[in-house]
Amino acid sequence: MNYILSRNDIPKVLEMWSKTHQVFAPQKYSNFSAFLPYEGKAEQLCLEYPHNTRYPPKALFLPQSEELLSYTKDGQASEPALDAKPKLIFGIHACDTRAMTLLDTVFDAKDYQDPFWKARRESTAIITLGCDEPCSTCFCTTVEGGPFNRQGADIIMTDIGESFHLEALTPKGENLCKDLPYASAAEDRKVSNVQEKATSDMPKAFDTEGLKTALDANFDSSYWEEVQRSCLGCGVCTFLCPTCFCFDIADEAARSKRYRNWDTCMFSVYSREASGHNPRPSRKERTRQRLMHKYSYWVDQIGKIGCTGCGRCVRYCPVGLDIRAMLREAGKLPVEVIHA
């Protein structure tokens, strides 16, 4: 069903949801925005920003540092309790919501389920705020998504001026909306206009047709040498990325605890082996890995591109490297035709 949430009612409704859920919403944090627990401060909300929060909301399910177990000297180990208290993420953009569904294929796969990830996912409802003004750095429509993509959302929310239009997509979503007024037919019509306009306004950032073939065929191309020259080798692109999930497990003996920390293929220590050998010895191999993982290996594994086009890596790269330009160029690389 479709419902209406007037702008003025947002604090009241968030208050109401807070009684049963821990509510996370995009709020001012330092000079930018992040998903933080909502503590009744409506003036802190950043629902009007066209761009994404700087820090990716994947951290709500996969915290940057997470305790996996603690142990004692006499050999006792215990795992922390799973986080199963009801949570609600309000106002997350479609690219970030969709990223969770991609990450489910890693942390909630047939052969392996991560209990920490799963507990948080199952106890969290997601209200996606569609983007009526996609940013210049956004390219969700290029990578199988869209500004109003519904994947992973319990409710999809559209800004129709005075109020937000909420379409409940799951029983979880319906349950959250039960105290809200229904949307009128006229309001429903406004929604389709907003959604269609936003989607059709977005140009294709690069061609994905044949991209994987070009990437695979050019694994050893000198292109990678060229494209990495200005790369600093920092972790901005991958840490801010909503779909990058690599982690490292570290024993912190002083705390008697084992932690899982985000890690990134852009660091040389990421792939350095115990012997000292590093199969990705330079930024060339590491840059290639970042792009190949998202645009080739994900496709091999789940048939989907592992990027949702949120644009954070484009926006915050300290040297202005643009994955869209990198892929546009990669797509033009020659693909050798092998005749049978």
């Binding site: 820090y55 920092c234 972790g235 901005v236 840490f239 300290p318």
Partner: peptide
């Protein structure tokens, strides 16, 4: 406390 340990400061 806002640090995400991406080491962009180091690399720059």
């Amino acid at each position: 406390e806002r640090c995400i340990r991406c080491y962009a400061c180091r690399e720059a």
